[in-house]
Design a protein around this nucleic acid. Structure first.
Lengths: 345, 345
DNA sequence: CTGAAAGCGCTTACAG
DNA sequence: CTGAAAGCGCTTACAG
């Protein structure tokens, strides 16, 4: 059935050892012999069995990736960055999710111990950080894509500049003459939420802070409550684009004009941000690059490089109509994110 | 280092064969012996090496999945459906993309031949259908998630009711008293586009057809051109939600009210559809279930079931404000897709 | 009910 | 430059 290294050896009139050397370009092989072996490999369509190679070599040339959910709006970008990098290095990517609770965890841990992969990329372990630490302690190389800013120092991680991102939003609003901002945060326990809020307030102090949960509803309610209370405000900084969309909806329903009455800035720059009404000014997370960087770090580690520390990737303020460059400055081209991007180093 | 089956056998005072039998609950084993072996396995933390098991058994308990891109708005749902199903069956999922052209294809084909996985799930092979067919011919079980309606009969596939989906959009508009619809299609070569258009026109004939390419821009331009030409129309059926969003934007810019002047219906029900202004009535593709179903079909096939034919999953019209149930019937709750869902079998 | 042995398809010292 | 042999960690007839 399957063509094996033995078939190639036989057809080429050499030993399996020599075939192996040709395949892996390891050790000296006579030029003519090598050419002959290669010809046979091509004609037979021989491809080494990854399972056998892995068993013999003790590694699988595969990395695992563990994510809480695949349907979050920015997860696709992270994944794409990871897959591209991993594929380019000739590795495979084994994907796992943690969405069925204890059962998933159990199954996953088993797969790990089975050495189905050589290293692991993790997004947001949340309640499973201890499990991951245990795996890491057992010798599994791990790199964390830390979008929650949990700052564990057990393993290298890739994070973004949440503090500076918050500050950039504040500077933008300040430059636009806004002085009474409402901040709609995510869950308080997240490090990224504290960082974004801290960075924002350092530039533009405010006591109008509504604790949200990253949902559209929480953004809508925050604005509705503030409007109902009659508290004056001239801008909104939401900790993610989804809750910013909720804020936009509440403002529209209340007849407030964005950005004339109220400017709105989000966080993430998910695809939807280009399609809200008006298109959303937002602090872009470099999600794809975070994926690429984490994969590169892990591959480097597998290749023997010494484990790196935390790598910080910069956010980028993307200016669209919900908070243009100057107050009432008219329409801004919002369909091209990079064209209208404003970089803060 | 690693705990092997030999270590377990030694510690339990039995042969590797017996340990293997206990692990796989295969063949008769004395109850006491089995209990002892299990205790040793637990205390040593033994987990079989997946590579070795795969080599010995000739299968990897892993399925591959090949997608053109991970950042498309509905890909996350498909992936989630696949991963959930595959994980529940104790299989691993190896993910591949085709985004670096010939290079990716080459690398991928190699991985396949390396038997890194037992079966393959494919989304939209597009220009690589011949490659996939070749793999299938070589004995690799393949299931296609066919969102483009290319209808190849080389392997089993999961599709959705594009024709009926188009018809349901037309019935909805017709019931709302609309008679002059503009259809904004996707690329003409796609089977799904022909099906959606055909289904729509059977119910609501129209000659206002703009060939788009699934981008926001194409939706915007189609509407702008029709408005500029002064051609009257009272509704829009766009072949995906992105181009529907473009249509919404163009209508808003032109001062046309949606849905009072023009009703708009999209296709897909991507997350963004809930956040457009107004929220979008759309024909929902059961993307997650398509992923689950395809995975189930593949696993069944691997388990020895005879290969199934094409499985067709129904679309579902989700009614939101851009085209409510009756003309000018006022606000519809658009935040809960399923609550406001209208099923067509 | 249990075990010795062969075999899955490779890689890697070791020897020449 | 090349090959015989052991070994990676399992499973599976085969024999008892």
């Amino acid at each position: 059935m399957r063509v094996t290294i033995a078939d190639v050896a036989r057809a080429a009139g050499v030993s399996k050892t020599t075939v192996s050397r040709v395949i892996n370009t390891k050790g000296e092989v006579d030029g003519g012999t090598a050419a002959r072996v290669r010809a046979v490999i091509a004609s037979l369509g021989y491809v080494p069995s990854s399972g056998a190679v892995g068993l013999a070599r003790g590694s699988s040339r595969t990395v695992g990736m563990l994510v809480p959910s695949l349907t979050w709006p920015w997860m696709g970008e992270v994944l794409q960055g990871v897959v591209d990098t991993v594929e380019a290095a000739g590795y495979g990517l084994l994907l796992f999710t943690f969405n069925r609770g204890a059962d998933s965890v159990e199954r996953f841990t088993t797969q790990v111990s089975a050495r189905a992969f050589d290293g692991l990329l993790v997004v947001e372990p949340e309640n499973t950080l201890d499990k991951i630490i245990a795996l890491s302690d057992r010798g599994l190389p791990v790199v964390l894509i830390d979008d929650r800013g949990s700052h564990p120092d057990e393993f290298p991680s890739v994070v973004t500049t949440n503090h500076e991102g918050g500050a950039s939003a504040a500077r933008h609003l300040l430059a636009d003459g806004r002085s009474r901002p409402l901040v709609i945060t995510g869950p308080e326990q997240f490090g990224c939420v504290r960082d974004r809020l801290g960075g924002f307030r350092e530039v533009l102090p405010t006591d109008l802070v509504a604790v949200g949960d990253f949902t559209e509803l929480s953004g809508r309610l925050a604005v509705e409550q503030l409007l109902a209370a009659g508290t004056p405000f001239d801008s909104v900084f939401a900790h993610n684009d989804i809750s910013a969309a909720g804020a936009l909806r509440a403002l529209r329903a209340a007849g407030r004009s964005v950005p004339d009455d109220i400017a709105v800035v989000g966080f993430d720059d998910i695809p939807m941000a280009q399609h809200t009404e008006p298109p959303l000014t937002t602090v872009r997370q470099p999600t794809r690059r975070m994926g690429e960087t984490a994969a590169l770090m892990l591959l480097g580690h597998l290749g023997g490089a010494t484990a790196q520390e935390t790598v910080v990737l910069p956010t980028e303020l993307v200016v669209r109509q919900s908070a243009p460059l100057a107050a009432n400055s008219g329409p801004v081209n919002g369909s091209s994110a990079s064209a209208s991007a404003h970089r803060f180093p």
